[in-house]
Nucleic acid binder design. Structure first.
Length: 128
DNA sequence: CATCTGACGACCG
DNA sequence: GCGGTCGCCAGAT
């Protein structure tokens, strides 16, 4: 899979620290691709040495279907990362990826993607 | 080739 | 602060 860099980043997350999907996505030059990252982690085989539990949602919110949620908070608590309800104190445990590897060695050598995004976040004019 | 989904993010109410 | 909706990316159908 082309998500190797994702796993790589997740694997080098220090114990007792956490990061967000968006953070990883940005590190991979995929702004807004947080979902894609989550998708990748979902495809990540558990017990593969990939501390997926150290990856949380933005704001330190824990999002995911059970029973992973319970498992995650247990694992994190085991590392010294207390979870308040469904949130983690990111200010204290947030870890910033180096954002290196951007191989973009996607399986399909067709969709080339400008690392520079044109402009996400449209103007707040009308949502409908 | 077109369409929907999914372990997300941000904004609006 | 919480819930709902739209938007982004990549993959699967």
């Amino acid at each position: 899979m082309s998500w190797d860099p994702v796993y790589r980043l997740v694997k080098l997350i220090p114990r007792g620290r956490v990061t967000t999907y968006g953070q990883l996505a940005t590190a991979l030059r995929l702004p807004g691709g947080a979902r894609a990252v989550g998708y990748a982690l979902a495809a990540t085989p558990n017990g593969r040495g990939i501390p997926w539990h150290r990856v949380i949602g933005a704001g330190g919110k824990v999002t995911m279907p059970e029973p992973h949620a319970s498992l995650q908070r247990r694992l994190l608590a085991s590392e010294g990362v207390p979870i308040e309800g469904t949130r983690i104190d990111m200010k204290l445990f947030a870890w910033s990826p180096k954002s290196r590897s951007k191989p973009r060695a996607k399986s399909r050598a067709k969709s080339r993607k400008p690392k520079r995004k044109p402009s996400r976040r449209v103007a707040p004019k009308s949502r409908v």
